[in-house]
Design a protein around this nucleic acid. Sequence first.
DNA 1: TTGAAAGCGATACCAG
DNA 2: CTGGTATCGCTTTCAA
Lengths: 353, 353
Amino acid sequence: MPVRLKDIADDLGVSVVTVSKVLRNHGDISRETRDRVLKRIKELNYQPNLAARALVTGRTHLIGLVVPDLVHQFFAQVAKGASHVLRKRGYSLIISSSEEDPALENEEISQLLSRRIDALIVASSHSTPAFLQQIEDAQIPYLLLDRKFSGCEACFVGIDDRKAGELATTHLIENGCQRIAYIGGKNVSTAINRLEGFRKAMAAHRLPIHEGQITCRSHFDDAADITGYKAMKTLLRRKPHPDGIFCYNDPVATGVMQAIIEAGLRIPEDIALIGCGNVRYASALRVPLSSVDQDCELMGEQAAAIALDLIAGKVVTPKTVLLEPRLIVRKSSVRPAANSNPVSKPNRAVVSK
Amino acid sequence: MPVRLKDIADDLGVSVVTVSKVLRNHGDISRETRDRVLKRIKELNYQPNLAARALVTGRTHLIGLVVPDLVHQFFAQVAKGASHVLRKRGYSLIISSSEEDPALENEEISQLLSRRIDALIVASSHSTPAFLQQIEDAQIPYLLLDRKFSGCEACFVGIDDRKAGELATTHLIENGCQRIAYIGGKNVSTAINRLEGFRKAMAAHRLPIHEGQITCRSHFDDAADITGYKAMKTLLRRKPHPDGIFCYNDPVATGVMQAIIEAGLRIPEDIALIGCGNVRYASALRVPLSSVDQDCELMGEQAAAIALDLIAGKVVTPKTVLLEPRLIVRKSSVRPAANSNPVSKPNRAVVSK
DNA sequence: TTGAAAGCGATACCAG
DNA sequence: CTGGTATCGCTTTCAA
């Protein structure tokens, strides 16, 4: 049985209260008592029972993180960033993966709430904010990550998705693409806003968009790359086929790449391709993949910081942190011929192998 | 203020004990009372306070999972598998990533122990089992995952690493490689045992191994792919350079691939390459990467199942689950010319794009 | 079939 | 400076 406060108190002939105070630097303790207690705590390697502490203080020092897919590197990196910040402050992270399933996500959230986590960070797979009610009801502070809801007052950390879409699309246009297609997810803000950025860039260059050029699919059980693969297969049936593809994330772009190559077409010569998220292995793919970087670890860190602020009651008005997307140019989108006559300078682009 | 047992009891004019019993199907409750209680619980959306419950029962329904790197897809998938099994049984998973740093790992473990998790699953970055003492001291059941320690009695779930090494190496040999190099990690059982399998396969085919052909490096802060990249750069300085490379995991192989291509050599013609772990994006890499599949989700599920058994006291003698490695052949290791004279049939190989 | 009483291990409050 | 006492929300035990 683990050492308790009482064991230490008894050993030293003081009260549990005294020991408890020493433990939390709660002043008003004589130097001498302090040292004796500290010594004994060390000797016995005392570890406070956090469940007991949680019961009386109402703080579990547990923070929940709900993501749509932990296997997607993006969310793993976010988790890493968040975990890093929280650990230093004595908090632990409970990570739940909803597998892009809203029903499962609700269950996960409910589990977390009943654990009385101190705050919740959610990258939701829901398409409407209704589910947030249960969190509000539980009165647990929360913030949205990566995906937000229009008209929702909650704190949010993510990137400027419109700009990301604009950046990527403009880049394709500057590389001579005319018939650019967009492949996105369904009903998530990242997909919707990146699409908006796409439309804006196309309009700015007076390029028409035909309906068939826009694909929005849910992932369901399919991994994102399979979704991309299938979507591209469909696009390839159009004549003429698109000459540029912007995917709202990198796993989708990975599947798209496979489909293009299988069709015997060249990237970027026949079809230029760009993703979003800049996963680590992007440069190692069949054709090094251009992408839009979202600094995912930083995103996790910021989310964690806000969660801590929320807990501390430091947040009065909902806070929104929008990280700047950065264009990362690799082979998949660069057409040497087209480059000779750029429409405009790329916006803070980074060229990477 | 969340709803408490007492609120429900007061509402219904029964005692908290009665409500508590209903909640846990603790027989000896009249049908009628049962239904009334259940109804009210639903209405108020009552969620038991797990901290309070943990305090009295000594069970937190929390299971810790410590991995060296959550961003490595392998461990994310393991976490997914484990989480899936545990969730169904009312347990939550607290995931800690040690970033391959033994000191950080100790801290993480200590945090988890002080949270009184019910069991701990560890894929350790330590090179000796000394750190296990703190877990033993805390009397918390645990099991090792992926990486084990020789002479250690604990439960273990992983793959047969020797066989994985043999499978991969034999495959390279059958594809005509003669000067095969091994690139592994330092002091982890997976690296050591896969190396052993490598040696065994080489010996079986009377192929000599020169010391320079074996590289074992820690990752430290570098991502695994950078480790692989650097190791390969060094190997390429040898004359003649190796004609086959077996990497103990896929991220390392990814870096190796980059280095080979940068050097202007062809895969598999000049150098054949195979990894281990079979990450999802293996087939999408610059050259589709052959690998050894370890069925990581199943590994996570098995680990979770054993953790539950340990908690239930069902495990008498330490249990070891070794999953069968499966060879996945892709382009990076297939040399058409060599295939005409295979040394032996590949062992249950799967050919995949 | 029901419930009163006694904790679980810690903290908060207030008296000495 | 120190410590007694009540309390957090729930389960356990045992008597009614």
